[in-house]
């Protein structure tokens, strides 16, 4: 048995540089290849022997997937933004499409939690595909209801919701994420609240919210709530959303609904200095703050 563990030394022999999506997914066919995007975690995990044997590295920088732009067909009700999977945090956070817009305020907050060295290399696609629950950005993207455009050998280009991605990220291991799409409508806003022990550290718990208010009644028209660093993968709180939909967003209602949330989330995993019990206690508080902030932002519009 011991002999099988041999050669955990990180020693890839090749860097492949596909120039088409087709070529790229073909490189992913073999079990010993891995995409290198911003590389904020791949080499470090591999060097610690935490990844399967990697022989081929796939460079996706020649695929032309670093961009942020508005979709061509825009309606007055909905504006869609398209972000290439290889776009860095820095490129997104400095884009005029994001800045100053309440619907993306949560996105900007999450992006800016990382230090410049990470913002300059980390990509939106990499943060999603890592499929861990302690990265800030995917939590907000989840709350924004992002649509993911994948390319796979079988299906070519196809769209899936981020919800279905997080239901089983492993399904997409051999596909290539090429684009993230998120749309916003008037009266909507997002927020991101993170509890951490060190201000620049990983979250102990975090929540993101996107809320759309009804233009006339000012009731909650649509709401998406996501929690991170609590469970193994980011989780959406459908039940809390359901309870708040079409309600007037008063602080009392929000607080009451949030208090229920702790009992609705199962499988909360402890982190080094925060037990499951503690996370349960702070969940309603973070949630309340995320919702009230988003509501405030949506109201100001």
């Amino acid at each position: 048995m011991r002999d099988l563990e041999l050669n955990m030394v990180f020693d890839p022999s090749e860097v492949l540089r596909p120039s088409s999506f087709q070529d790229a997914v073909e490189t992913l066919d073999s079990s010993d290849s891995k995409i290198v995007a911003g590389n904020t975690s791949l080499y470090s995990l591999a060097r610690k022997g935490r990844l399967e044997n990697i022989k081929k590295l796939v460079d996706i920088s020649k695929l032309g997937i670093s961009y942020i732009k508005e979709a061509e067909s825009q309606t007055s009700e909905e504006k869609k933004i398209l972000v290439g999977a290889g776009t860095t945090f820095q490129e997104i956070t400095s884009s005029s499409l994001i800045n100053g817009r309440p619907e993306y305020a949560g996105l900007k907050e999450a992006l800016n939690k990382s230090p410049p060295q990470i913002r300059n290399v980390a990509t939106i696609g990499g943060s999603i595909c890592s499929a861990v629950s302690f990265y800030d950005l995917p939590i907000v993207l989840f709350a924004l209801g992002t649509t993911l455009k994948f390319f796979s050998k079988k299906e070519g280009e196809h769209l899936i919701t981020i919800d279905s991605f997080f239901q089983n990220p492993a399904l997409y291991g051999k596909s290539l994420l090429i684009e993230c799409q998120f749309s916003s409508s008037p009266n909507s806003a997002s927020s991101f609240v993170k509890l951490c022990r060190r201000m620049s550290g990983y979250a102990v718990a975090m929540t993101a919210a996107r809320i759309k208010l009804d233009r006339t009644s000012r009731e909650i028209d649509d709401i998406r709530l996501v929690i991170g660093a609590m469970t193994k993968t980011p989780q959406r709180l459908n039940q809390v959303e359901e309870e708040l939909r079409h309600k007037e967003p008063s602080i009392e209602t929000i607080t009451r609904m949030c208090e229920k949330s702790a009992d609705l989330v199962h499988d909360i995993i402890p982190s080094v200095h925060a037990s499951t019990a503690y996370k349960k206690r702070v969940l309603p508080i973070l949630l309340r703050e995320a919702i009230t902030t988003a509501v405030e932002r949506a109201t100001e519009r």
Binding site: V36, L57, S61, Q90, Q117, N120, V121
Partner: peptide, 19 residues
């Protein structure tokens, strides 16, 4: 280990040389 890559700071320990 920070260095500047095209004028922007990056962690050199996370930057594959081939990149």
């Amino acid at each position: 280990c920070s260095v500047l890559l095209d004028g922007r700071p990056v962690y050199s320990c996370l930057m594959p040389t081939w990149k």
